[in-house]
Write a protein that binds this DNA or RNA. Sequence first.
RNA 1: GGCCGAUUAGUCUAAUGGCAGAACUUCUCGUUUACACCGAGAGAGCGAAGGUUCGAUUCCUUCAUCGGCCACCA
Length: 724
Amino acid sequence: MQDKFLKPYNPQETESRIYKMWEESGFFNPDNLPTRHKEKYSIMMPPANVTGMLHMGHALTMTIEDIMIRYQRMRGKKTLWLPGTDHAAIATQSKVEKIIKKEEDKSRYDLGREELLKRIDAFAKQSHDTIISQLRTLGSSCDWSREAFTMDEKRNFAVRTMFKKMYDDGLIYRGKRIINWDPKGQTTISDDEIVYEERSAKFYTFKYSKDFPISISTTRPETKVGDTAVAVHPEDARYQKYIGKEYDAVFCGVPIHIKIIADKEVDKDFGTGALGVTPAHSMIDWEMGQKNNLPIVQVIDEKARMIVGDERIIGKKVTEAREIIVEWLKSEGLLEKEEEIKQNISTAERTGGIIEPLPKLQWFIAVNKPFKIPHSEIAGVQSGSTTTLKEIMRNTVEKGQINIIPDYFNKTYFHWIDNLRDWCISRQLWYGHRIPVWYKGKEVFCNTEAPEGEGWTQDEDTLDTWFSAGLWTFSTLGWPEKTEDFEMYHPTDVLETAYDILFFWVARMIMMTTYALGTVPFNNVYLHGMIRNSKGQKVSKSLGDNVDPADISKKSGTDAMRMALIIGNTPGTDCKWSDDKLKGYKNFANKIWNITRFILESTKDAKYNNEFNNFSEMDKKLIEERNAFVTDITLDMEEFRFYMAGEKIYHYIWHTLADVILEDSKKVFNEGNEEFNNSRKQFLLGTLKTVLIVLHPFMPFLTEEIWQSTNEDKSILMIEKWPI
RNA sequence: GGCCGAUUAGUCUAAUGGCAGAACUUCUCGUUUACACCGAGAGAGCGAAGGUUCGAUUCCUUCAUCGGCCACCA
């Protein structure tokens, strides 16, 4: 027995040494696995944003995925776990912009595109290195030789290829639409990047002018200079006689022309039951404008300043203009009511800017437009048939081709798809994949490469970060090239991630993959919950209570952290982080260490014999019990119940093996019956092997360390065969 | 407003149409002989009401409370 077993288990001394040994073995790379590993098993690691460092949520992701991969590897699968990082366009750019603002008091326009990108690249590189080292600390058995970045050259080529393909199929188009404009970040953002904040606001009721027949209500009087209609409910008796009529008015010095229209969207009982329609600055009004052929009058610019009116309002910020107009309404005696109401206001997730809806020329993906799919393995969608992106996305889950765990997220997914509108993919950011479209006069050219000849300028915009993330399962495998990796590992087996990015990412991957390849990107989606702090609150930087996985790992060992994260954590359910739990599993690590010590001491004169079959009746029973335990947890592993398997393994080791079997063994050895002694020694040696194997996916470092220290044959536990 | 969850012991968390199972905590006892990072034992729990059923913590309905997602009222 080695001397180290005389002291408590020391994870700090062990973990980095073991990780290095694994890496040097080459077995993270499926190409190097022994020949018994034939059938593939693949997981694409969710690429972490290069915006800083990993938090406990990432640690949970890595733990679950590493458990899946290690389990499947031991079961003899050819396992590929492909790691990577995400450029996270808006998140990274706004983070770096904030730092530059703080440290140098400069904006991105002061630096210019080239310099800003240089700074972002440097920041991203540093984040990347931090992240990679954290992933190693967590014990992730991923294939570093295949590491990818969402914006490296290969991924960029995949993005351009995809854009071109969708453009040619008419699924990507450029159009003037109302978009969510973030005046602070100076970019468009998607619906998903909006967060609503409840604030109190003033709700004004007034007439445009003294002789205007209908009063309207709004929280934004300043936009009324862009009104081109008043909408009322078609069945509203009060206003029937006005429908179709047109009026002229001068509103705070701005001449406006208003048509009275009828629209079912209008709520008779809200406000005055009449709605001033501003097609240029409201999503709903825009749609009414389209239906009724209303003129669009833009009155606010990208900096959220007024661009019409006389010297009273022109050039003023919208909030200032609002006050001025309210004063004007009062002085003219037009204001009828002023109420305090609660209002949800849209803000940009990353910058906190208040969203200003603006009509702008942007690129979109058409989700409802029919197209012909040449090749399809999607259930319910024939090769060569006509379909829509929405329809294929729905089918994959509806027909069971993609299995979401837990299954109640199916409903959430369908609900989202059914309400999905065209996806705005262009961003006025500098950090990201540049849109592969070039202009010369009225000519437009889209291709993966720039056009020949002089005078072409490329579109200034970049793509939404989720565009490249949507290609992740196959761009990482070399697509559009027909690589061996792609043939072997796609579709992937599981996509494991937190449920909060089901729409952002999972749905987008399904969209892009089904469209481009006619296959699903993965067969299973395992959604884990959020890690909350001990009070049950969402962990956030502003609370200053985000725990660094590296610290925990240093203090208590990665294995203990992994157990604390995984046990009691069911899919889709949030989980509280608890230091007590961590302590419990740290103790568990030492318990196993001492179990090993006891077994080694009491079997000093014996050697494990695989062929031994002269077991006592008592030990035969124990073997049966052990086999039943292994069968049971194997089923849990197969059915994604890792929280359950982990708990059962813990229980078997501590309360069956240690408390019952080892205690009983002391008696057996004291009694000195040689036959019984030999039987028990073989049983204990065999059981130690078994529990090390089944515990390995959960506590890889400790189990590998014991395995290496107790086996003379230099075998590596990581690729040992699962016992059944 | 629409949708989706949740409510189990002091805490945290499972399973289940047939005695509700762990972990931590608490209490009692033991033991320094693999491990005090120990052992043996004890205690304590299904939010409320109704329904289906031989039987409901589980299925259904309603209510209460909490959480989340989506839409957004102009």
